[in-house]
């Protein structure tokens, strides 16, 4: 798999991106009543798309099927809640690095313990560690227990007392998230094209062969796991900033499962696929929610249908339609 997308597909994705960039301009005209709601919804989806990309690095690239990824998302959010002064704005230049550092540390620790296992053990162990994180915030008084905690004032983004952006403004925050979302995408693209990314991609296909070539797979997997966890932490930090609220369900394994569904629905290992997956998944949820109060059953049916009918995800479909420049990876023993 090379780093290039087929040109028509790249253009399509760029067009979709242009829609996102321009939405705040034409949104009020198209949806005068629902504009603010949709703006927030799109912000939330882009945050989840960052989460999905970070999980794709693990699942789709490194072959590490984690079912505890939301723990890092939640931890990122909780760090903001814990580090924010009660009635004052936190300084983003302090809290964001601290939050990411804490998440990176947690991810490295969990990764160190989990990467010793493989296959089904890895799935179960990450699930269990994820739940451990959930209970850490649910059962203890750390930050409001099972009720969660509020972030009263959004972090301030200032240089020398001058506010660069006001995160409280929904539109500004939308563009901040959009910028980070695009930035994270290119960050991962850079990562995947680097020597590190090539090794990790190869590990996902055939770990033993990579070892035979002279690389220590455990080390590369650990670094990939830590990077993925940290970016998940960034997305959780953004989610906490957006809603001004954190609660233990951010860490719950349901949330990990949803992120996994986004990755698979979109097409794992493709990076743009999980982004599409996040959008389709969340928009489907929106649609189902408006149809019935038992929308979760419909989500369940959708998930099962994806597994049975669309094993390579939307990206697989798109790459087929737009002429994948190369055949996809074959199944390895």
């Amino acid at each position: 798999m090379t780093d290039r997308l087929p040109r028509p597909l790249a253009l399509l994705l760029l067009a979709l991106l242009a829609v996102l960039v321009l939405y705040p301009l034409f949104g009020p005209m198209l949806f005068p009543e629902k504009h603010t709601f949709l703006l927030q919804k799109l912000t939330g989806i882009m945050i989840l798309a960052i989460l999905a990309m970070s999980l794709d690095l693990l699942v789709g690239v490194a072959g590490l099927v984690s079912l505890g990824h939301a723990a890092f998302f939640g931890l990122g959010g909780y760090m903001l809640a814990i580090l924010s002064p009660q009635y004052d704005a936190a300084n983003i230049w302090v809290v964001l690095p601290l939050a990411l550092l804490a998440v990176a540390g947690a991810a490295a620790l969990v990764g160190f313990l989990s990467i010793r296992t493989s296959g089904i053990y890895f799935i179960m162990v990450t699930l269990a560690f994820g739940q451990m994180g959930f209970y850490l915030f649910n059962d203890t008084k750390l930050a409001g227990g099972s009720d969660g905690a509020y972030i009263m004032v959004k972090p301030a983004v200032e240089i020398a007392g001058y506010a660069l952006v006001k995160l409280g403004s929904k539109q500004s925050f939308y563009y901040v998230v959009l910028g980070l979302f695009v930035g994270v995408y290119f960050f991962f693209r850079m990562l995947l094209a680097s020597p590190f990314g090539r090794v990790v991609r190869a590990i996902g296909v055939n770990e033993n062969r990579v070892r035979g070539l002279g690389f220590n797979p455990a080390l590369y997997k650990l670094v990939a796991f830590t990077i993925g966890g940290t970016v998940a932490g960034l997305s959780g930090f953004l989610a906490a900033t957006q809603y001004g609220f954190v609660n233990p369900s951010m860490l719950s394994w349901h949330h990990s499962g949803e992120a996994l569904v986004m990755v698979i629905l979109g097409g794992m290992g493709t990076l743009f696929g999980p982004v599409l997956g996040a959008f389709v998944f969340e928009l489907a949820r929106l649609g189902f929610e408006s149809m019935t109060e038992h929308w979760l059953a419909l989500m369940g049916a959708m998930v099962i249908a994806i597994v049975l009918l669309l094993p390579k995800g939307l990206a697989g479909l798109l790459l087929q339609v737009f002429g994948d420049p190369e055949p996809k990876a074959e199944e390895e023993e």
Binding site: V65, L67, G119, I120, I264, M268, G300, V303, V307, L308
Partner: peptide, 28 residues
């Protein structure tokens, strides 16, 4: 039965979907 030849990831997802349906049926 459709999952025997599929990898763990598909199994995780399909049975995750089953959980959602089970939970919602229970609520109904």
């Amino acid at each position: 039965r459709t999952l025997y030849r599929r990898d763990h990831l598909d199994q995780v997802l399909l049975t995750y979907g089953l959980i959602l349906i089970f939970n919602e049926s229970q609520r109904m």
